[in-house]
Simulated assay, not measured.
Amino acid sequence: MNRKRDVSRQIRWGHVFGYVAMVLVVLTIALPLAWVLLTSFKVRGDIYVQPAIWWPRVFEASNYHDATTSVPFWRFFSNSVIVTGVLAVVKFVLGILSAYGLVFLRFPFKRIVFLVIIAALMVPNQITVIVNYSLVAQLGYRNTLLGIIVPLAGVAFGTFLMRNHFLSIPTEIIEAARMDGAGHLRLLWRIVLPVSGPTMVAFGIITVVNEWNEYLWPFLMADDSSVATLPVGLTQLQNNDGLTNWGPVMAATVLAMIPILVVFLILQRHMIKGLTSGAVKG
């Protein structure tokens, strides 16, 4: 009886520590976002006051007007939409097709190809910047959206994620479809993709978020505002000659976060299912 009581007490304390850890993680993530949001409504005097204050004395929406008029914000926004949209589609298609090939096709050196993909995941993008920059410059694609998109079209993570999910599909379903005469295209379209919805959503969300927030490569490729994406263009709001007015900077940051935040909130359940669906085979 005492042993059961001790076990129950340990479980109860484990739940308490789990909730405390969860609250700490949420606060760590939410507090900076709350600071950005509140600062976007502050006047300059409230931003630089000492000690710092969280709540604005007066809510001022002029920061959003300044953020969208002092720089070509909507041009940056449209460039980000184009780059993110094209890369999301390209990576989505390539990731699914390459993962399908690694799982359902037989060809020489398949394991070596997969090891190369794994190795690509271990190489930081910064290492390939010089080589990619030299190649793009020689092709004449600098300061173009094409020069930003093509070098970022690698899809190692998506291939890895989708491959793990495809391996978790019961082999009986695949064999039954093949016995019915299904070719590769029909097998992919009618059998594999319909049972891969959550994983595809997770793949899509991760890809969109990563490309929307990409900074280094667009920064190297963009010489002017015509092709600059949001992360690059918003640096123009900072005043290098004097004190930066952080109000418009924070307002622009909020506007840049809203599209991705809305997408994530709508699809988060599917994303969690997708990331865990390949963990257990069967």
Rank of each mutant, 00 (worst) to 15 (best):
V93D: 06
L216K: 13
A182V: 03
P231V: 00
F77Y: 11
V81G: 04
T199E: 10
I127A: 09
R44D: 02
G204S: 04
G154V: 15
I118E: 13
I191H: 00
Y141T: 04
L135A: 05
A228D: 05
D223F: 06
T244Y: 07
I260H: 09
T159E: 05
V25Y: 03
V232I: 13
D6K: 14
F264W: 11
K42M: 07
L234R: 05
V7G: 14
I82P: 00
N143P: 01
A34R: 06
A279P: 09
A177P: 10
I47S: 09
T244M: 08
L167H: 15
L230R: 12
G197W: 15
T199S: 06
T69W: 02
N79S: 11
I47Q: 10
V16D: 14
T39G: 04
L152H: 10
L152C: 05
Q238L: 07
G242C: 04
P194I: 12
G204A: 15
P231A: 02
M1E: 15
T229H: 12
G181R: 08
A222N: 05
W35I: 08
K91C: 03
V83S: 08
D223V: 11
A177K: 03
Y141K: 02
T159R: 04
K42N: 10
A279Y: 14
H270V: 02
G154D: 14
V131G: 13
G183Q: 09
F219V: 00
Q126G: 11
V89Y: 04
M179G: 03
I266S: 09
F92Y: 15
G85H: 01
L230A: 14
Y100D: 06
G140Q: 01
N143E: 01
D6H: 15
A67Q: 05
R3C: 02
I206S: 12
Y141G: 00
P32L: 07
S8E: 14
P170I: 06
T128Y: 02
A67T: 08
S98Q: 00
L146P: 02
R111W: 02
I266Q: 01
W217E: 03
S134F: 12
W54L: 02
R5Q: 07
N125D: 13
S80C: 00
F104T: 01
K281L: 00
Q238M: 13
S8W: 12
Y48F: 12
G95F: 08
L145G: 00
L31K: 02
I127F: 14
L94T: 00
F107Q: 05
I47H: 06
L105N: 09
I173R: 08
V81R: 08
A153H: 08
G282T: 02
F77C: 06
I258L: 07
N79W: 06
A177Q: 07
R57F: 07
T144D: 04
L105D: 03
T128G: 04
S80M: 13
N245C: 15
P151K: 03
L38G: 11
